[in-house]
Design a protein around this nucleic acid. Structure first.
Lengths: 363, 363
DNA sequence: TGGTGTTTTTGGATTGATCTAAAACTTAGC
DNA sequence: GCTAAGTTTTAGATCAATCCAAAAACACCA
C-alpha cells in the first residue's frame, strides 16, 4: 500500500525488479508474466513476446527462492561424498555436474570425510534448504535406517557406489563383483594358480561384492590357494600387505587389489623387495585412475568409469524427483579390464603403449 | 483464514509444521518463535525454553527458503572451479567445505571445464538462487570485466588461485612467484647454471607470476642461460618439452615445472631418453600433489597447500559477506619447497625416505 | 443477435518466514 | 498510586513468486 505511485522510491537496488514490475511495464497481470517465465502453452504468442521484451528491458532476474516457497521444487540437489580429494570422486562429481547442468539443476556438495556425524549434519541442513533430492555415498558406519528416515523427510535419496539398508532402494554404481571376476579370469588365463586379494573393510557393500567375486572365481576355476587380506585402502596398506604375503610360503604369483592406490602400494612394496611387478608377481588394480596408465610398469586395472556413474546417478535422481512413487532402480555399470604391463600379459619396449588421457591440468 | 480451527486438515504432510503451529502450541506469537529460533537475546528465558520444547515436540524444520525471501541472507555460496577431477582442486574444495561447515553455510559447486560460457551460465543460476557470495577460480579467457559485473549484481566474489581484472579485488592463493624463486635458489645452490622453465599459458595471472619469478631469479644469480617453454600443462606436454630441450645444445641441467603433472611428464621423458631424473637432469614440480612423494624418484616440489587456500578463501568470503564495503583483501600463502630425490640433492637408499600421506582411500 | 465452447487472462489467496513499530508487561522511584 | 523507563511480546505488512477458480476475450454457428 504505497502512498505514492512511483515504484522504486526508498531503495535504489538494481536487483529488485519483480514480476509485478514486469507486469506493469508490459500492461498485463502478474500471473501472465509468471506463465511466460515458465513457458506455459496457455499464453498467446503476442502477449508472450511483449512480456519477454519487458523482461529484457527491465533486466529482470528470476527469484528461485520465492518460486520454491510457493511451488514444490527448488531445482537443487544435495551431493555427499566421503573424500572429494580423491580424483575418483572428483571425476564422479564432474559427471553429476554435467548431467544436472543440462536440466537446470544445481547441487550442494559436502565432504563427509567418512564421518556419519558430519554426514548427518549436512543432510539436516539440506532438509532446511528443501532440496529436491540427495545423492549419497554413505559414510562408513552409516545407520542402515538412514534411507528410510530420508524418505520420511520427503527427500528421495540415490545411493552411489556403496549402499546400506535393505532393497529396494535407488542405487547407481559399478558391478564390483563382475570386475573382480574379469581380473581373476584374466590371471587364470595367463596361468596363475595362486592369486591373493588385497584390501577392504567388511562394512561396505562394495567390499563384500568384491570379496564374493574373488571367492566365486576361485571356486569356478577350481583353485585351492585362497588369501584375502583386510585393510584400509591406502598405498601404505598395499606396501604392508604385499610384503607380508611375499614372506609366506607359498607366496602368491598374482594379486588383485581393492583399488588402484593399494595396487600402487603393492607394486612399490615388490620393488622394495627387489622383485619386479608383472614378472615376479602380477598386480591388478581397480578404478583405472589417471596415473594407472603411466608409471613403471603401467598398471592393469578394472576401469569403473566414475564420470559415467556420476551421470547415471544424477539422471536417476531427476527421474525419481519427477516420479517419487516409481519403482526403485539399480543402475549398475559394467566394468572393463584394461590390460597393461603390471599383470605380465604384455611386455612392450618402453614407450610403445604410451596413451595420455586429456585431462588433469590446472592453474 | 481457515474456517475451522483444526490445523492440518487438508494435507497430512508431516513436513509442514510451521512457525505458526509452534506459536499455537506454545501459546505465544509467531514473532516470538522466530526470535527464539534466531537466538535473540530479547526473549525471556522462560518463554525461550517453552518454545524450544514445542519445537522439539512438533518436530519443526526450519525453512531457509522462506527466511531468505524476507531476510537478506541465504547462507549459501557458489563455488566455481575449472577441473574438479584434479586432486588439487579436490583438496581445495575440501578446505572450503570444512571452513563453511563451521559457520553453517553450504555451497553450490560447479565445474566450468575452463569454459567461460559454462562459467557464465552457472553464475547466472547462482544469481537466481541469491547466493551470498561466489568463490571463483576463473576459467581461461574469462572477461576481465566479470568481477565488476558480479559486484553490480550484489554478489561479492572472491577469486581463487588465478585472478582477472584490475586490483583491488578479493583474492586467495599462493605466492607462485616466491615458489619459483625457492626452487631456483635451491638449484643454484646445488651448482646448476642452466635451468629451464616448463609450461604455462600467458593468459593466467598464476602463470605470469611464475615466469616473472623465473626471470628474476636468473637475473639475481647472474645466470645467462634462459629457456622458457610455453604449453598446456599435462604430462604429455612435460614429455614433449623435455625431449625437445635435451636435444638442444647446450641442454639444461635442471628444469622447474609449472605443476607436478608437467614434472612427472618430464621425468618420464628423461627416462625414455635413457637419462636418470635427478642425476642427468634435476626436475622440480609445483603443488606437491600426493603422488609426488612416491614414484621413482620421488619428486621435489613446491607445496602450494590447496586445503589451506580453500579455507582461507572461504573465510575471506564470509568476512566480505559480513562487511560488503570493507577493504578488499589479498590472502597470499607462502609456498614451501619439499626437497626429495628428483633434484639430485638427496640420494638415499630405496625406502629410506618413505613417508605416506594418510589420505586417498575410497569405496 | 445470442448462445455455446475455447482460449487467454486475471485477481486474490497462499507459501513461511522476517521486519517494524507499537502494545503489554515489569520494575523502580517519587 | 502514578509515572517513567526498561523489558518482552505481538499484530500486521512484507518478501516474490505460484496456484486456483473465475472472468474476460474471442471464435463459431444457428
Amino acid at each position: 500500500m504505497r502512498q505514492d505511485a512511483s515504484p522504486r522510491q526508498g531503495q535504489r537496488d538494481t536487483a529488485s525488479v519483480t514480476l509485478q514490475d514486469i507486469a506493469a511495464h508490459a500492461g498485463v497481470s502478474r500471473s501472465t508474466v509468471s506463465l511466460v517465465l515458465r513457458e506455459s502453452p496457455l499464453v498467446a504468442e503476442r502477449t508472450r513476446s511483449k512480456v519477454q521484451r519487458s523482461i529484457k528491458t527491465l533486466g529482470y532476474v528470476y527469484n528461485r527462492g520465492a518460486a520454491a516457497l510457493r511451488g514444490s521444487r527448488t531445482s537443487t540437489l544435495g551431493v555427499v561424498v566421503y573424500d572429494i580429494a580423491n580424483p575418483f570422486f572428483g571425476a564422479m562429481v564432474a559427471g553429476i555436474d554435467a548431467a544436472l547442468n543440462r536440466e537446470g539443476y544445481v547441487s550442494f556438495l559436502a565432504n563427509s570425510e567418512d564421518s556419519p556425524a558430519r554426514q548427518q549434519r549436512f543432510l539436516e541442513r539440506m532438509r532446511e534448504h528443501r532440496v529436491d533430492g540427495i545423492l549419497l555415498c554413505p559414510a562408513e558406519g552409516t545407520d542402515p535406517g538412514l534411507i528410510n528416515t530420508l524418505s520420511g523427510w520427503g527427500m528421495p535419496c540415490i545411493q552411489v557406489l556403496r549402499h546400506v539398508g535393505e532393497p529396494p532402494f535407488d542405487y547407481a554404481g559399478t558391478d564390483f563383483h563382475q570386475g573382480v571376476c574379469q581380473a581373476m579370469d584374466h590371471l587364470v588365463a595367463l596361468g596363475h594358480r595362486r592369486i591373493a586379494f588385497l584390501g577392504g573393510h567388511y562394512e561396505h557393500s562394495a567390499t563384500r561384492e568384491r570379496w564374493q567375486g574373488y571367492r566365486e572365481s576361485l571356486e569356478r576355476h577350481g583353485l585351492t590357494y585362497q588369501r584375502l587380506l583386510r585393510s584400509t585402502v591406502t598405498r601404505r596398506d598395499g606396501v604392508a600387505m604385499i610384503q607380508q604375503l611375499m614372506a609366506e610360503s607359498p607366496a602368491p604369483s598374482a594379486v588383485v587389489c581393492h583399488n588402484d592406490l593399494v595396487a600402487f602400494g603393492a607394486m612399490l612394496g615388490l620393488r622394495r623387495l627387489g622383485l619386479v611387478p608383472g614378472a615376479d608377481c602380477a598386480v591388478i588394480g581397480t578404478d583405472d585412475v589417471e596415473e594407472a596408465s603411466l608409471g613403471e610398469p603401467a598398471l592393469t586395472s578394472v576401469a569403473t568409469h566414475p564420470h559415467a556413474i556420476g551421470e547415471e546417478a544424477a539422471r536417476l535422481a531427476l527421474r525419481r524427483i519427477a516420479n517419487p512413487e516409481g519403482a526403485r532402480e539399480q543402475v549398475v555399470l559394467a566394468p572393463r579390464l584394461k590390460v597393461r604391463d603390471s599383470c605380465g600379459a604384455t611386455r612392450p619396449e618402453p614407450g610403445a603403449t604410451w596413451t595420455e588421457p586429456a585431462t588433469g591440468e590446472h592453474a
